[in-house]
Design a binder for these strands. Structure first.
Lengths: 87, 87
DNA sequence: TTGATATTTAGACAAATGTCTAAATAATTC
DNA sequence: GAATTATTTAGACATTTGTCTAAATATCAA
C-alpha cells in the first residue's frame, strides 16, 4: 500500500498511467510525451513497476510498458472501505 | 488532485482517515492513537484538511475533525477511469 | 568489430517532507 | 487575573524525492 500511494504521488507518474491506459508503449515513446530527461522517466517507470502498477517486457532493444489493471482495481478497493459506511 | 495524493502518501494520515471513518474525533483523541508528538499530528491534520479529506470544527477549546466522504468518493472516481477500459 | 540506438545505472544536488522541541493562542476554571 | 488544558505555529534538522549529466549495458546493422 505504501509503494502504491508513493507511486501515485507524482503528476508525471499519474500521466504515464493515463498514457498506458490507451495502450502499451516503449520507454522511449513514453519519454517523448514529457519535457523531462529519459533517465528521469526511467526512474518514474521503475517506481511504477515497484508499486506493481505497470509491467515491463523486453522486446529486442525496446522495453514495452503496460498498465496493470489488477493493481489499479486493488487500490480502488481501498477507497471503497470508506464509501460503505452506513452507520 | 495533487494535494489529495500528497495527503494520502503517508501511513499515519491514512490511519487517521480510518479512525475518522468510525466517527468524529478531537485533535487530542486522534493524537492519542499514535506515538508521535501532538504538533506532528496537528501538521498531518492540516495536510488532510488542505486536501479536503477532513473538516475541522471548533467546539469550545476542542477542535473536532470529521471525514469528508464526498472527497473520498471524488478520488475513487479517479480510479474508475482506468477500470472502464473496454477496447 | 565498429557505430548507432534504446534504456538503465550511478552520483550529485536542490527542494520537499516528517519529525521534534519551544513558544504562541485560545478557552476554562479557580 | 493566574493557572490549566487543548491545539497550533515557528523553526530546526535529517531523510526522501525529482531532476540532471555522464557513464554503463544491451541490441541491431553495416
Amino acid at each position: 500500500m505504501n509503494l502504491l500511494f508513493k507511486a501515485l504521488n507524482d503528476a508525471t507518474r499519474r500521466e504515464i498511467l493515463k498514457l498506458l491506459k490507451e495502450g502499451d508503449k516503449t520507454a522511449g515513446e513514453i519519454a517523448d510525451h514529457f519535457h523531462i530527461s529519459k533517465p528521469s522517466i526511467s526512474h518514474h517507470l521503475d517506481l511504477l513497476k515497484q508499486a506493481g502498477l505497470v509491467a515491463a517486457e523486453k522486446q529486442a532493444q525496446f522495453i514495452t510498458y503496460s498498465l496493470n489493471t489488477t493493481v489499479v482495481d486493488e487500490i480502488a478497493q481501498w477507497f471503497i472501505q470508506f464509501k460503505t459506511k452506513k452507520k
